[in-house]
């Protein structure tokens, strides 16, 4: 599951995850333009709330993650946004542990940043609406799937069988990925029409 609880991962994985997340947050905050702070806060809030929308899939149960959409809109700034949201989810909802917070941030923020680059590559300058929507759908869906694969990978590094973990986590997240792809297309489609500057496009 996307939010890994305490006591599952081994110490080297925890330390590596914390280091990556700290570095990512530091780099993102350094780059962050202060004009975009309200945007970051709002997307942190959306990300925070998204995890409460859940539905059962097979033997397990999954919820929205929305890291793809967060990444498209924030780029590197997704790191601090996701870090704050995950910390609050852990403290207030008990989603994921506090010791594994670094790994959880890494698992969700790295795909978010990759999705930002993917979206920019596909959407180009935003002149072609078709390409913008495709970029949004791909990035929205891939954000979830990459997170699922990273969860499976850290579970493997902590001594679990990769195939079993990957199958369970990835398969359970296919429906989430589809829903998030559709959701991202809707949100980005709207934003590209009414506020293209948010996506870095010329108005």
């Amino acid at each position: 599951m996307a939010h890994i609880p305490d006591g599952v991962l081994s110490a080297p994985v925890l330390i590596a995850g914390a280091a990556v997340s700290l570095a990512g947050c530091g780099y993102a905050l350094r780059r962050l333009d202060e004009e975009r702070i309200p945007e970051v806060a709002i997307l942190a809030a959306v990300f925070f709330v998204a995890s409460l929308v859940h539905f059962p899939v097979g033997p397990t149960s999954v919820h929205l993650i929305l890291n793809g959409l967060t990444g498209i809109l924030l780029g590197w700034a997704a790191f601090p946004a996701i870090a704050v949201a995950l910390l609050l989810q852990a403290v207030l909802f008990g989603f994921g542990g506090l010791v594994v917070l670094g790994v959880n941030i890494m698992n969700m923020a790295i795909p978010a940043v990759l999705c930002c680059y993917l979206f920019q590559a596909v959407a180009g300058n935003g002149a072609n609406r078709q390409r913008v929507l495709w970029g949004a759908g791909l990035a929205g869906g891939l954000g979830v799937l990459l997170t699922a694969i990273m969860v499976a990978a850290v579970l493997t590094l902590s001594g679990r069988e990769f195939f079993a973990a990957a199958k369970l986590v990835v398969v359970a997240h296919v429906p989430v990925a589809l829903i998030e792809a559709a959701f991202s297309v809707a949100v980005i489609g709207l934003l590209s029409r009414v506020k293209p500057s948010l996506l870095g496009f010329q108005a």
């Binding site: 202060e34 702070i37 970051v40 806060a41 709002i42 809030a45 704050v84 609050l88």
Partner: peptide, 20 residues
């Protein structure tokens, strides 16, 4: 719980904005 979390995010955003 949800509103509390949103409040924290809003507050942190405001703090960051003010400091910047």
């Amino acid at each position: 719980d949800v509103l509390g979390g949103l409040g924290y995010i809003l507050g942190l955003g405001g703090l960051a904005f003010g400091l910047a």
